[in-house]
Design a protein around this nucleic acid. Structure first.
Length: 502
RNA sequence: GGGCCCGUAGCUCAGCUCGGUAGAGCAGGCGGCUCUUAACCGCAAGGUCAGGGGUUCGAAUCCCCUCGGGCCCGCCA
């Protein structure tokens, strides 16, 4: 398709490179200093009437050439940079006659060019730059996608994201917004006196969640290693160590199937807050989402879903009791007093295929997913889950058989998970033991070190974890996680896949 | 893991039911046009129809396998 073998179009463009070099034009120069964003020129044009040329000095811009329209002895070209798109107005009397014709012969859509000239507005009212001098900044050999439809093929958009980005201002805006939303998340936790920390990605045994890890190996240590699946346990060790508010924002890895809301590598945030409980944390999460919704509406004013996010994430979010919600939706009474076997039967009855030896909490999760989760379209805190659903949360202070936990749901999927953290080392041992009944003993070594840490005393605390991609998806109404990851994992086989360079 | 759908020029797509010389638009080439903006008009060029096998006188089209992708279901604290 492409790569080592060039298409006739690319050969045509290489001929242009030769021609340019022959007339002393370097197709890949080293610098282009002092250019201003296209939006600056657009701003200056706003003060001009149609047909007028700015008299308050020249302007220099740089960007990618998109379309070139030649109309008799005049040419129009669209120059795009990150700030916007500006029309270049090209005339032989401004550029000089040999130069004008040579440029039109050797420039193509997709080329990166610099332009010096004066802001103007055409008679038809289009803000433009009356170009006095052109500079080629990088010749594009590969032609860009079609100017109107862009790159549509979903596979090509993922595998060659750079082409998707260079041809779609919308894609650029979405990923820029993701970065700035992440910046806003950091600002939020920083402003609340949380300390950002970094903990290991390579660990002997991945823990803190129940997911399949990626495994690798240290040649020097001659030991197996895993990539982390959660940030929880190292961060709690920091609470033991005396840090009072910590958070980590980083990649986690889960060797599970991929779908619209699951990616093998994803960015996770976990925060731990000493001397607070899950109600404090609930308020903090609510405040964070209110803030992020406002930010997203600012960043993507043209996206309807982003504008609606402000309304969607308007506080207070609804709060529902896990058991009450499940009983209400399923019509099953006394669900938290049912035996494991009964729950298994109920879960199977709604189509869940869960192993026999799973703990009761697994069956409750299945029932909740089936009956309640799809109905939680607006932000909703589900609180006070049955004890068997998590080994790391503290027992509820007043509801027997429950834990102090909340999950935030929105648009039918989970956005955050939080507990009042379990800090009683003896209870932690019992709760792990229950979980280990159906997991492998190889997990015991690391868990025991965590219990050892708790024996030194961890302050009462709340903790929260959430997936950054899902948060951004919920805020922007993006249905697929691959649309918010720059380079999502794909199979490497196939003609369009990455190839070693010749 | 199960089901459905898709893969044709650099890009966006027709053609596939009902087998008969592979088509259009954009981009690129050549020519024209003094305010275009998905510019316009004319001419010429551009193909491993994802890959492999089969049926057939003849396959982009029908059948089988493989590869890649999308959606749904299942699985996934």
């Amino acid at each position: 398709m492409e790569g080592a073998e060039e298409s006739p179009l690319e050969r045509e463009r290489r001929l242009k490179v030769e021609r340019l070099r022959a007339r002393g034009v370097e197709p890949y120069p080293w610098e282009f200093p002092d250019r201003v964003p296209v939006s600056d020129v657009l701003g200056r044009c706003a003060a001009l009437t149609p047909g007028a040329v700015a008299t308050n000095g020249p302007a220099r811009v740089a960007g990618r050439l998109r379309g070139i329209r030649q109309v008799g002895k005049t040419a129009f070209a669209d120059l795009e940079d990150l700030s916007g798109s500006l029309q270049l107005f090209l005339r032989p009397d401004e550029l000089g006659e040999p130069a004008y014709s040579q440029w039109l012969g050797d420039l193509d859509p997709g080329d990166l060019v610099g332009a010096d000239g004066r802001p103007m507005v055409t008679r038809r009212g289009e803000p433009s730059l009356r170009v006095e001098r052109l500079t080629l900044l990088a010749k594009a050999i590969a032609p860009p996608p079609e100017k109107f439809h862009g790159l549509k093929d979903p596979e090509a958009r993922l595998r060659r994201r750079y082409v998707d980005l260079l041809s779609s201002a919308e894609t650029r805006a979405r990923f820029r917004a993701r970065s700035l939303v992440v910046r806003e998340v950091r600002r939020f936790f920083d402003a609340h006196d949380f300390l950002e920390v970094e903990t290991p990605i390579l660990v002997p045994v991945a823990s803190g969640a129940a997911a399949e890890p990626f495994v690798t190996r240290s040649g020097y240590l001659d030991e197996g290693l895993q990539l982390r699946i959660a940030l929880e346990l190292p961060l709690k060790r920091l609470l033991v160590g005396g840090f009072e508010r910590v958070y980590e924002l980083g990649r986690s890895f889960r060797n599970e199937d991929m779908d619209a809301t699951h990616s093998p590598e994803f960015t996770m945030l976990e925060a731990y807050w000493a001397y607070s409980d899950y109600t404090d944390m609930r308020r903090l999460m609510e405040a964070m989402y209110v803030r992020l919704a406002a930010r997203v509406a600012e960043l993507l004013p043209d996206l309807p879903a982003a504008r609606e996010a402000v309304e969607l994430f308007r506080p207070p979010f609804e709060v529902v009791d896990f058991v009450e919600a499940l009983e209400g939706a399923s019509g099953i009474a006394g669900i938290d007093t049912r035996s494991r076997e009964e729950l298994r039967g109920l879960a199977r009855a709604v189509g869940a295929t869960v192993p026999d030896r799973s703990p009761a909490g697994k069956f409750l999760d299945k029932l909740f997913e089936h009956y309640v989760e799809p109905t939680l379209l607006r932000p909703t805190f589900v609180v006070d889950h049955p004890l068997s659903t998590s080994p790391l949360a503290k027992r509820h202070r007043s509801k027997p058989g429950r834990i102090e936990r909340f999950e935030l749901y929105c648009r039918g999927y989970e956005l955050a998970n939080a507990y009042t953290e379990l800090n009683d080392p003896d209870d932690q041992v019992r709760r792990f033991a229950e979980q280990l009944a159906e997991r492998g003993v190889e997990h015991y070594a690391l868990d025991r070190d965590f219990v050892e840490a708790l024996r030194y005393g961890m302050p009462p605390a709340s903790g929260v974890g959430f997936g950054v991609e899902r948060a951004f998806m919920a805020l922007t109404g993006t249905p697929s996680i691959k649309e918010v990851i720059l380079f999502p994992l794909t199979r490497s086989a196939g003609s369009a896949g990455p190839r070693p360079e010749p």
